[in-house]
Computed example of a mutant assay.
Amino acid sequence: MSCPVCEAETAQKYRPFCSKRCADLDLAKWLNGSYALPSQAPEDMDVDVSTEEKAPNRPH
Rank of each mutant, 00 (worst) to 15 (best):
G33H: 05
S39Q: 02
P56H: 03
E53W: 09
D46G: 12
L27I: 15
A11P: 09
Q40T: 15
M45K: 10
A41R: 11
P4R: 01
P4Q: 00
C22E: 02
L37P: 03
S34K: 15
L37H: 09
N57Y: 14
L25F: 11
S50D: 14
K54H: 08
E7T: 02
S39I: 01
E52Y: 08
A11Y: 07
A55S: 05
M45V: 10
P16Q: 00
H60R: 15
C3Q: 05
E53N: 09
S39W: 04
C18A: 02
C3G: 09
V47S: 04
D24I: 12
A28I: 09
C18R: 00
T51V: 15
L37N: 13
N57H: 07
P38E: 12
V5Y: 07
A55N: 06
R58F: 08
A23N: 07
W30N: 12
F17S: 02
K54E: 09
F17R: 01
T10D: 07
E7D: 09
L27V: 14
S19K: 05
R21H: 08
T10H: 03
P56D: 07
N32F: 13
Y14L: 06
A11D: 09
T10K: 04
G33P: 03
K29N: 13
E52T: 14
T10Y: 05
K29Q: 13
S50T: 10
K29I: 00
M1E: 01
V49P: 06
V5N: 09
S50N: 14
A8F: 01
N57C: 10
V47F: 10
Q40E: 06
E9S: 04
P56A: 02
E7V: 01
E7Q: 11
C6L: 04
A36P: 08
S2E: 08
A36F: 10
S50E: 13
V5K: 10
L31W: 04
A55Q: 08
L27F: 15
V5L: 00
R58N: 06
V49K: 05
Q12I: 13
P16G: 06
K29W: 11
D48E: 14
A23C: 12
K29P: 05
K54M: 12
E52K: 13
Q40S: 10
W30D: 11
C6E: 00
N32L: 13
Y14Q: 07
E52F: 13
P38I: 09
E52D: 11
T51G: 08
E43N: 06
D26Y: 15
P42T: 09
P4A: 00
K13M: 06
L37F: 12
C6I: 04
H60D: 09
A36E: 11
N32Q: 12
T51Q: 15
D46I: 07
S2Y: 07
D44M: 06
P16M: 02
V5R: 03
A11T: 11
E7P: 03
P59A: 06
D48C: 08
E7N: 10
R15G: 05
N32S: 08
H60V: 13
P42L: 12
A28V: 08
P59E: 04
N57F: 14
D24G: 07
Q40P: 03
L25C: 06
Q12A: 15
S34E: 14
Y35S: 08
Y14N: 12
N32R: 15
C22K: 00
E53P: 01
R21W: 03
